[in-house]
Design a protein around this nucleic acid. Structure first.
Lengths: 161, 161
DNA sequence: GATGAAATCACTTCTAT
DNA sequence: ATAGAAGTGATTTCATC
């Protein structure tokens, strides 16, 4: 990907509702040029969608937790993500290396709701769970700066670059 | 929060660029009424912002990991989030209950970049790290349905409700 | 709070370079 | 791939209920 596209992606990651007019101003292109680039980025799947960032306390889901799961029967087919998809409290599901097979990020209304959710997770996917409760979140959803390309020697994750 | 506001929040969580015209159609309100409600939700902090959802593979950050950190000196003041804020590879920082003090979600370009990042985390915050590498992500950023209010007996995290 | 109208501005398409 | 112009449609403000 190229310089201007990376700039567009970064701008939209920070403000998903930024207008094409503003994107044009920020990139030095015309409105129709950025418009075409954004549409192409969407079509290519670089921009996968747009979302409002919600305060979960305000919508009645103040409790966040990470739930690591491990199959009870290691020989059984591993379709946990599909079996858990109906549980809307699960915000994300990552397959991970290590002792456990998946890490789920969940949001619930209360400790009791978490207890109930864990039972549903165990029953739905035939797994054991290990839960880490989030106490507070200093930051989240920080928009990442796109790496120019993997440059040898430069790791590319320091903001001081 | 009330029924129509919850509906607006849910719609914007799924599509952060939805127009006021469409929001009005979906809620049965007039355009100016939803407009006023959205502005109020933004002002109250229920809607904290808007973001494009980016394919990290496409922008050169294909490696995701969870990094749990623990202070080397438990007596030292715990300001890890501030000390780590300059590392732009860190997408989120959660304070957690359990053996470790924080869980970081990080995105990097390569294993070498992760190694480099871990060294910077340890040096910046005087912590030990435990890293869980993400192999794949079945789903992420699933928009959550707002709970009506904490209803006794109803846990409120099942989509079948 | 909600509405409808009016003005402004952005989005989108088309043509041309 | 970019730019500019033109038509359409959305955003925003305002008067009114």
């Amino acid at each position: 990907m190229e310089e201007i596209d990376r700039r567009i992606v970064t701008l939209l990651a920070h403000d998903g509702r930024m207008s094409f007019t503003d994107l044009a101003r920020e990139t030095g292109l015309s409105v129709s040029a950025v418009h075409q680039r954004v549409r192409r980025l969407e079509k290519r799947g670089v921009v996968r969608g747009y979302a409002a960032i919600i305060d979960h306390d305000a919508i009645g889901l103040p409790l966040t937790a990470f739930v690591s799961i491990k199959p009870i029967d290691p020989a059984a087919p591993d379709d946990a993500p599909v079996r858990l998809a109906h549980l809307s409290a699960i915000e994300a599901c990552h397959s991970v290396a290590g002792d456990e097979s998946y890490i789920l990020k969940v949001r619930v209304a209360s400790p009791v709701a978490l207890e109930d959710l864990l039972q549903q997770i165990r029953a739905s996917a035939n797994v054991s769970t290990r839960t880490t409760v989030v106490l507070s979140t200093p930051y989240e959803h920080r928009a990442l700066v796109a790496a120019p390309e993997t440059t040898p020697g430069e790791a590319g994750q320091d903001a001081s670059a």
